[in-house]
Design a protein around this nucleic acid. Sequence first.
DNA 1: ATAATAAAAGATGTTTTTGTCTTTTATTAT
DNA 2: ATAATAAAAGACAAAAACATCTTTTATTAT
Lengths: 145, 145
Amino acid sequence: MGIFSKTCEYALRAVFFIARRTVEGNRVGIKEIASGIDSPEHFLAKILQDLTRRGIVQSVKGPNGGFYLNQQSLARPLIEVIEAVDGDGLFRDCGLGLKECSSKNPCPLHSGFLEVRNRLQSMLESITIGQFNEDLNLGIVVLKK
Amino acid sequence: MGIFSKTCEYALRAVFFIARRTVEGNRVGIKEIASGIDSPEHFLAKILQDLTRRGIVQSVKGPNGGFYLNQQSLARPLIEVIEAVDGDGLFRDCGLGLKECSSKNPCPLHSGFLEVRNRLQSMLESITIGQFNEDLNLGIVVLKK
DNA sequence: ATAATAAAAGATGTTTTTGTCTTTTATTAT
DNA sequence: ATAATAAAAGACAAAAACATCTTTTATTAT
Ligand code: FES
Ligand code: FES
């Protein structure tokens, strides 16, 4: 288990991939996304269906159809994708699994966690889906290995 | 899903609980631990069996038996418990799920992740199992709610 | 030695996550 | 209108995580 669920990892890689195609002016089909990010095709399809319902990504059916991102979606911070898929537990729940996280009756790790998680949160709030297109095109960052 | 697995959350709460009893000079049975940290008894038993095999906690069978921690175990940093239970994936794997994490061919989140995870890692390396006994006794921190 | 105690080990069950396959619906080009 | 295309939806399956129950083994006090 990583910091995010597998589902969420696929979702993040997929939106990065779609963003890149979108700014090139194209929609992109599920097959191409799946092979471009090295994910199981039908499983990813489910994930993108859900993201589409939630308005995180856009899609059209039929010939020349596929997934794309509108301006609003391109500008979305990553944390919205993560919360749509995994919920906000990573940022709100107690790191030791206690029923709730609060600074009255904190668990032993509360203050340490708070600092790390706030840092993660603000990082994910400041990174947008669309901001890596150039680095992806240049091969400076990658979505599969 | 939190940052650690449920199994690991129970393990961490349990070692904190055992530490407290140990410095009072007592061994503590599985029933008392389970109720003291609000975890399923038989499931926790499996977890502690594993931690015992790995030498993270100590135990003796029979009357007056139970779990306890020797000096070395009391001084152990939390990260050793976590790595024993969840492995080191949280600190070594790619946050986007790519096959490996490295600064050549990084994923888009690599540098952001690196900073957050290093912070988490050094926090968990500097906190020891035994260091919260006083706070636990005073009720400043808690292991169940 | 015996009985009582408590962890260790083994067998089994449930739920969630992850993954696959098939059918249906919407859209587009002809 | 029709055929081709591609996502949406539904049914199903495997694996991992989480959990429970029973039997065995080691230890201690009597
Ligand atoms: S109470 Fe445990 S992290 Fe806040
Ligand atoms: S390559 Fe993704 S976190 Fe390092």
